[in-house]
Design a protein around this nucleic acid. Structure first.
Lengths: 240, 240
DNA sequence: GCCCGAAACAAACCTCTGTTAATTCACCTA
DNA sequence: TAGGTGAATTAACAGAGGTTTGTTTCGGGC
């Protein structure tokens, strides 16, 4: 079975057998990170690139007043810190949500690979462009939607991502987040997220228990929260 | 004098004379776009890439209820639609703020160039990674800061960008935005932006008149609004 | 089975930001 | 110079979301 990185990059580029093999080898011998532990901290100047092999991680900033804002959820196949190739220093932190496996890849290796395999370089660039689309949708969600729609939108996005990797069964999937994390994602408070979730339940839009989220009618929730999945779907076929 | 695209890419990569020449030629014969006119619309499947050569543009989404959210300011040297290399379809629109000059570059040309000049491909990737950092800072700003700090933060960011390209004189620079645009940037309403600006004025943090913004003490404004310029500054020196 | 801390749930109260609308100002054109 | 349009300003009011506090439930360890 192909690993997550390979699967992800193949959505935007055709890879040769050789390239695929190289990618597989990068994920060898990942380190195990305990739940909640930081993988990278603001200010770090990492010598390795960090790749999520298994589990979930969050990208987040802590403000001087202690508030936290989450800016990304990282799933298997996602790099934590590609930007340090350019900016060197971390301007935010990364933490494992649950227990996770992280591969440590020397920066030099990546620099070498991208110089030798332009095809791979392009795939990484394109994956970055897709990520940008996700960030833009995040901004729109936070800037112009009510808390109720914001929460619905987030859940639709999670559904899509999990569905893309075959992890939705019977309209339900595992959502290993506390209300505090949802709040820090959407720019709200845990208390208010509680209110919103209880309303989503009351209106029959979701059933959430034991970190398992069930969305009985995803199309209805999408319509209500103004979710448009276009931004997640690369339609590109390599023109070679 | 080098054009804006060249200057921008040289901040993240060493370019050969030949590469620089190619970049210059891309900006030949830009089209003139009138103030306020759309350059690209949501749903478009452009055959060309669009590059800002002169003037400012905004990236924005319109929601079903008519609300607008701006997700980027594009200045000379910025591409409007690199992501259509992967996603093909525009999931947002782009409009010229004032009168602007836009270069139309065939997608095929860019695909060809990036295949022939890996150095250029890498520079574009890295520029994309820098953009990602800007989007993350935008999210943090909207999610976890009060309207007052949010506005101050935006102005600090504009100051930095303009300063980087030598357009700040005597602590002042041209800010061609209406309060409505500032509101749509920060996820607030024009009325409230008005309140916030008047308070920023009262506290002597800014002087704004005729689209000219003066920040008497930039360090003070940065401190008050929690601005950290790290995310804007590539420190990288190409490892050749 | 019991205990503990964290997470979820609830209620009262408060404040920031949104809404609406009227007034003034700036700029452009006839 | 007058008239017109969009932007900025101001004010009164409303409502979404924050704060604080307390209670209940959940999950893991013993």
């Amino acid at each position: 079975m192909a690993n997550a990185l390979t699967r992800k990059l193949e959505r935007v580029a055709d890879l040769t057998a050789g390239e695929r093999e190289v990618l597989e080898s990068l994920c060898d011998r990942p380190r195990i990170i305990r739940a909640g532990q930081d993988i990278l901290r603001e200010g770090d100047r990492p010598e390795h690139l960090h790749l999520v092999v298994e589990g979930w991680a969050i990208r987040y900033n802590i403000l001087p007043n202690g508030a936290r804002q989450i800016t990304a959820y990282l799933i298997p196949g996602d790099f934590c810190d590609l930007h340090v190739l350019v900016l060197e220093q971390m301007d935010h932190s990364i933490a494992a949500l649950g227990p996770a496996k992280i591969a440590y890849i020397p920066k030099a290796t990546v620099n070498l690979l991208t110089r030798q395999l332009p095809e791979l370089l392009q795939a990484l660039w394109w994956a970055t462009l897709v990520d940008e689309g996700v960030l833009r949708a995040w901004i729109v969600n936070m800037g112009r939607r009510s808390a109720f729609k914001r929460a619905g939108h987030l859940m639709c996005g999670m559904y899509e991502r999990m569905n893309n990797v075959g992890l939705v069964h019977g309209n339900a999937f595992s959502l290993p987040l506390t209300q505090r994390e949802i709040a820090d994602t959407l720019g709200l408070t845990p208390v208010h997220i509680g209110r919103v979730i209880s309303r989503l339940r009351k209106e029959g839009l979701i059933a959430l228990q034991k970190k398992e989220l069930l969305i009985p009618d995803i199309e209805r929730l999408k319509a209500i929260s103004g979710f448009d999945s276009r931004y997640l779907h690369p339609e590109h076929v390599r023109v070679n």
